[in-house]
Design a protein around this nucleic acid. Structure first.
Length: 190
DNA sequence: GTATGGATGGACT
DNA sequence: GTCCATCCATACT
């Protein structure tokens, strides 16, 4: 497996979001294959960096290749990878196909249904025990481990989920036909 | 199978 | 006071 370093993220968010599909992401040895991402690019009204630096989004104004973790709806964490751009872009990791540490994930999630372990940004953070403590950490150093896709899956493309601004931009990417997506894509694989 | 609504709490205006 | 890059349980068709 080929580790991904900061150079991998020194590109625009859309490019990185596509390239991450099929990559293996582990946190403390627990994780799986990335099957769903969303890009939040520079000058994107839906991006947290759009309004300038604040306490929450400080990691989005640092170097690419680091995690940006924030809390949403008071109860869930969301994991992003900071990319290039001015202001910075980011890629939201939305779903994994669990491959490593299934038992620990099941324990943390309270279910043994593999399809419910990491199929959603909040779910995968719970399964991998990602919290605000991981905000700002580099993806190529522990507790993170990230490896390039060995076989690049066919990409499914669609609009992003759960946002109100720029909701029409097709910047959601997924592994076509995966059973571990947070939601199906509008159309078949491309 | 889909639809809907509540929980939840920090960040921001 | 308002806004969320969500999840889950419940109530339907």
């Amino acid at each position: 497996m080929t580790p991904l370093d900061a150079g991998f993220f020194a590109r625009d968010a859309v490019t990185v979001a596509k390239a991450l599909i099929g990559a293996r992401l582990l946190v403390e040895g627990v994780g799986g294959l990335v099957v769903e991402t969303e890009a939040y690019d520079r000058d994107d009204p839906a991006s947290h960096s759009f309004g300038g630096p604040t306490r929450r989004n400080a990691s989005m104004f640092g170097p690419p290749g680091r995690a940006y973790v924030y809390r949403i709806y008071g109860a869930h964490w969301c994991l992003n990878a900071v990319c290039e751009g001015e202001p910075r872009g980011a890629v939201l990791i939305r779903a994994l196909e669990p491959t490593d540490g299934l038992e620990l994930m099941a324990l943390r999630r309270g279910t043994s249904d593999a399809r419910l372990l990491c199929s959603g940004p909040g779910r995968l953070c719970q399964a991998l025990a990602v919290t605000g403590a991981e905000d700002g950490l580099e993806f190529d150093r522990p507790p993170f481990a990230l490896f390039a896709a060995e076989d690049a899956p066919a990409l499914a493309i669609g609009p992003r989920i759960g946002i109100s601004k720029a909701a029409d931009v097709p910047w959601r990417f997924g592994a076509a036909g995966s059973r571990f997506l947070s939601r199906p894509f509008p159309k078949a694989a491309a």
